[in-house]
Design a binder for these strands. Structure first.
Lengths: 148, 148
DNA sequence: GAAGATTGACGATTCAATCTTC
DNA sequence: GAAGATTGAATCGTCAATCTTC
C-alpha cells in the first residue's frame, strides 16, 4: 500500500509520509463516526446541525447556523430541507425580520440528537482508550501546531 | 467555539475532545491540499487518480483503479469521465477482455501530475517542519493505534 | 445597495439497478 | 451466474446567480 505521490515502485519502505497518514486516519475515523450515527438514522452533517440547534436557547436563523457550522448558506438551506423532511426540524418565520427564517428543533429531533450523542460519546471513549495519555498530549500539540 | 456534542453552554473549558480536534485539523489540512492542487487545475481526487496511473507501467482497468483508491467502481467511472473531459486520461479498450476498459494517462496528464506532486511535496515539507520530530513519532504511534 | 435565503449547476462520493460480456 | 462498467438517484459540499426584504 504505497500511496505516496512520488513513489516509483522500486524504492520501497520510504519515510512514511505523515501528512497522508493523518488524512487517511481521519478518513477512517470519520467513517466509523458515520457508521455509529447511522445506527440512529443520522448522518454526521445532520447530527452536527441538530447539536447546534439543541444547544441553542431559541430557534436559530439559517445564516447563524451557517456561521456556526462554518459552511456556506446554501448548504444549510438544503440540509434543513432534508432535516425537515425527516421531521427533525421545523422552519419558522422570524416576526422581527421577514427576510430571516429560523430553524426550530422538534421533540423527535431532540430525541434523535440525544441518541446520536450517546453513540458519539462511546466512540470518543474508545478513542481516548486507544491512545496513551502522553501521545494524546503530543497529538494535541501537533494539531494545534498545524492550525496556524 | 465549543463544538462538543454534549456541551450545554454553561460548563466551559472541557476536556478538549481529541476526536473532533483531529477531524477538524484533518479537514483544514485537506483544504490546504486542495488549494495547492487547484493552482495547477487539479482536485485531490483527480491528482490521486493521476498518480495511480502515472506509477503504473500500463493502462489500468477501471476496477483496478477502484481497488487501489479503495472506492466504489461507479465513482471511478465518473471521475474518469471528468479526467477524460480535461484531456488528462484516455479510455482504451482491453483486447483480451471486452468487458474491461482501461484508463491511459496522456502526456498532459503526466505533466499535470508532476506539477501537482511538486505542490504536494511543498506542503509535506511544511508539515514536517511544523511538527517536532518527537511529536511526529507520537503522532505516528497514535494514528497506527487508531487503525486497528 | 446589502443581507437573508433560495435555486441551479457542478464535484465527489455512495448505493441499487442495469447491460454487456465472460 | 458472476465480473466489469455504466446509469440514476441520494447526500454533502462549493459557487454563481436570483429574489425578497431591509
Amino acid at each position: 500500500m504505497n500511496n505516496s505521490p512520488t513513489s516509483k515502485g522500486g524504492t520501497a519502505a520510504p519515510v512514511e509520509t505523515s501528512l497522508f497518514s493523518l488524512l487517511h486516519a481521519a478518513k477512517a475515523l470519520e467513517e466509523r463516526l458515520e457508521a455509529k450515527l447511522s445506527e440512529v438514522g443520522l448522518s454526521g452533517a445532520k447530527f452536527s446541525a441538530l447539536t447546534v440547534l439543541a444547544n441553542a436557547a431559541d430557534p436559530l436563523a439559517l445564516s447563524e447556523m451557517a456561521e456556526r457550522q462554518s459552511c456556506v448558506r446554501s448548504n444549510i438551506t438544503q440540509l434543513v430541507d432534508r432535516l425537515e423532511a425527516d421531521g427533525l426540524v421545523r422552519r419558522v418565520a422570524d416576526p422581527t425580520d421577514r427576510r430571516s427564517i429560523r430553524a426550530a428543533i422538534t421533540p423527535l429531533g431532540r430525541e434523535r440528537q440525544r441518541a446520536g450523542a450517546k453513540r458519539v460519546n462511546e466512540l470518543q471513549r474508545e478513542f481516548a482508550e486507544a491512545i496513551s495519555a502522553q501521545d494524546q498530549q503530543a497529538l494535541r500539540r501537533a494539531l494545534t501546531a498545524l492550525g496556524d
